[in-house]
Amino acid sequence: MKDRILKILESLEKLDRRIIFIFIAGAVALPLIFPMNIDFSVTPPVQSFYDSIQSLPEGAKVLLSCDYDPGSMPELWPMNLAAMRQLCQKNLKIISIQLWATGSPLAEAAFNQVAVGEFNKEYGVDFVNLGFKEGREVVMVSLGNNIPSTFPTDYHGNKVEDLPIMEGVKNYDDLAMIINISGGLPGTKEWILQVVTRFHIKLASGCTAVSAPEFYPYLQSGQLSGLLGGMKGAAEYEKLVGKIGLGRRGMDSQSISHLVIFVFILIGNIAYFSTRKKKKRE
């Protein structure tokens, strides 16, 4: 009996990786087709993100920097939509910029879906997309001196100074806070280092899960007023904003696939330690 178990464990050690892929594919696909609606709670960093926007007075102007690309859309697109939704619900004015060239069409699509499609907001009055500017940290610092001279025209080629939303907006002093949807570099870290400390403005960040651990120290130090980490953060935020999106829908798949990975790690370790003695004897 013991030999038989050892043989099974030995075969598990040599398990073809493609079998694991099949299990993962099933764990991801099945919960999407048959949702289980596994419940989850809202964590303090996400609650802070929501509260920091909620605390702004109606009509305040917010800078939304969409610094990501289609590669990180599954994590950041739901956050972008949910953030726009909350900003529109609160009647806040959105000034969007992108430090990633690939972020411009995504920000534009998000505005069309949420600001125009759901809230009927007016371009140039309630929101504006200033587009992409090359220069990374230099652009961030330059915005602190003069926003219209850094972005003389918007994404559509309109003169920024002619847009009603830009009236009275010169630099960060005229903005209530910055929201950064960050896919990497330049992103949240650069906003913290170059803008938050120097220009004393509030920053909330939505970032990929892979970069979230790097930003927790800034949350603890108060340099970040809220943090959405990956799809889980997006799902929690969608729950607060009150509209289900990909973040919430993906959570069942996320939970089940993590469980499958956990089981495989467990089996792999049991097989390794059980067969190690036998291998040593041989």
């Binding site: 991801v28 696909a29 999407l32 599954p74 892979v210 651990p213 993906g250 996320q254």
Partner: peptide, 23 residues
């Protein structure tokens, strides 16, 4: 903890693609 977050991130990308294919 960082590796756990990395796994979550990669799974999210897979979920995004599978969501597109199935949806």
């Amino acid at each position: 903890a960082s590796f756990g977050y990395t796994v979550m991130s990669r799974m999210s990308l897979l979920i995004g693609r599978v969501y597109f294919l199935l949806g």
